[in-house]
């Protein structure tokens, strides 16, 4: 059951909502799909919403970090939204700080932040 994560396009922004627990294959597939989509659409911003995710281990964190760096190489800013308190605490205790990552409370906030960032 290899499910792909849907990537939606709204004007010049890609919106991704991760709805279920990520296994390694799905995570890597997602990384490829997102970069391909960025290339096709030349979107300037990406919002990845993690509201439904209840844990992130170092592997998933690394994939996310890589996606952000790769997107920025391709000229797109990424905002991560909806990280749950429990997830944030475990990440910090694991020693994963995800520095230089833009974050927002929810999708709406994330889109606002992205808009400000792109206008600047």
């Amino acid at each position: 059951m290899n499910v792909r994560i849907p990537i939606l396009k709204l004007r010049d922004t890609l919106i991704v909502s991760i709805q279920w627990e990520l296994d390694d294959q799905t995570a890597i597939q997602f990384q490829e799909d997102l970069l391909t989509k960025l290339h096709e659409t030349s979107a300037r911003g990406v919002v990845i919403d993690l509201t439904s995710i209840d844990f992130i281990d170092s592997f998933i964190a690394k994939v996310l970090g890589d996606v952000i760096s790769m997107s920025s190489l391709m000229g797109a800013r990424v905002v991560i939204t909806g990280i749950q308190p429990a997830v944030a605490i475990t990440l910090i205790e694991l020693g994963i700080r995800l520095e230089d990552v833009m974050t927002a409370l929810d999708l709406e906030n994330g889109l606002d932040k992205l808009q400000l960032e792109l206008e600047a």
């Binding site: 209840d54 844990f55 749950q84 308190p85 429990a86 475990t90 694991l94």
Partner: peptide
């Protein structure tokens, strides 16, 4: 929930 996340993450690692 926080401890659940801690335990799940530790197992995953």
């Amino acid at each position: 929930t926080v401890d659940q996340a801690r335990i799940t993450t530790a197992i995953s690692e």
